[in-house]
Design a protein around this nucleic acid. Sequence first.
DNA 1: AAGCGCGGTAAAGTTTTGTAAAGAGCTACT
DNA 2: AGTAGCTCTTTACAAAACTTTACCGCGCTT
Lengths: 238, 238
Amino acid sequence: MNRSMDHVLVVDDDVELCALVQEYLRAEGFSLKAVHDGEQGLQQALSKEYALVVLDVMLPGINGFEVLRRIRSVSKIPVLLLTARGEDVDRIVGLEIGADDYLPKPFNPRELVARIRAILRRTQPVSAADGVPEVLSVGDVELDPATRSVLRAGQPVDLTSVEFNLLEVLLREAGRVVTRERLVNAVLSRKFMPFDRSIDMHVSKVRRKLGDSEEDGDHIKTIRGVGYMFARPAKAKK
Amino acid sequence: MNRSMDHVLVVDDDVELCALVQEYLRAEGFSLKAVHDGEQGLQQALSKEYALVVLDVMLPGINGFEVLRRIRSVSKIPVLLLTARGEDVDRIVGLEIGADDYLPKPFNPRELVARIRAILRRTQPVSAADGVPEVLSVGDVELDPATRSVLRAGQPVDLTSVEFNLLEVLLREAGRVVTRERLVNAVLSRKFMPFDRSIDMHVSKVRRKLGDSEEDGDHIKTIRGVGYMFARPAKAKK
DNA sequence: AAGCGCGGTAAAGTTTTGTAAAGAGCTACT
DNA sequence: AGTAGCTCTTTACAAAACTTTACCGCGCTT
């Protein structure tokens, strides 16, 4: 799955910032990979796996401009440059060597998202809209983020908004345990508090709606003391 | 229709600033026409005589956003927006309704030139593939910005102006969640206030007019606590 | 096997959204 | 000007979605 429409590469040596951005972009429906130096950035950027690169100009090793120049020498992938506040010169240079946009640091994450969308909108070929109709499909459950609809065994399942997000996260990590904390963060976008049972509640509802908890077929497993997991299609199941 | 490659239109009510910019751009090889209000700006921008428009958001008469929106409804001419310093909201709104770039005032004329060049560079070669598609078509809904008309299943749908803008924004982002705040910004051209329910109201009306909310076929989905999303048709098939 | 901690879930409580209806601002026509 | 007809905004209340509480049961530890 190459160059999925919302796959973004971030090249910045500030690990914390990367984490923050990641969280934010995830919430907005992008997936994201972060690397922290120019070498790797260049390599990843040319891997054709990303729709766009967010590139800091201040980098250890090769600096951002150099990375950009090298990217441009072989690729037209959209690049959004992060520059230091007030460095007019950087911005001008950046645009001149082929950045698609820049954003001065520190920035408002909302603006980053808006700009990424703007760039993608204008660089995406007309119909690109439906490049790969991404559907998460595990066992007899199918979830389509673009329509926010879910099918189980071909039948539509009516989920609320939180339930949908919850199932989406679990499906993306199907076969792997997802901690309560991550679920709270990702699904409810808030911090996890010790006695928060809300997620359990939602899991319970999703289970019921998926027709779970009968004898053999529970889709969502509980991992005691840790979290939940969407079970991979165990065998040739029906 | 000339549309000579370096013919630039500046729309700004500050006459002195226009003169300054004119002088500067001339020196850089551009020719330039300046007008000082939204009406004229719009008219000129649509005259097909310019390669690019530099548009101030603060204008007497129609404001810059509205001008931009109207330009975008029929033309994909590149637009660089001039915003007040620090108005993140303006910049974001601008990009959302289709500006190609923005520059905060007061600006460095060299940067203006660099940005104009950058925009021209990236819009020139791909001009066919980028910009505004003539018709937005998602599932059984078709919206034509040029005539401001909407069809559903081939039948005309009568929308008010706000409703139309709302649907347009949602369609452009079909398959993705658009936050309430972004909708207020882009559709109503104002800042989002905590208890503003106006957007909900409009969504409700658009839904009804699209014949939504019946069984499975609701076009506009609610994402609680976040915003709305126009569902892609996708569907079965896999 | 009793105690404890953790998870399931019904039900009560809170917050957010849907939408009818009333109000406010415009425009056009009389 | 006065009024009728729109459109957009605000208000208000009902409904839906989400959170918290509370109680129950299960399985692990002692």
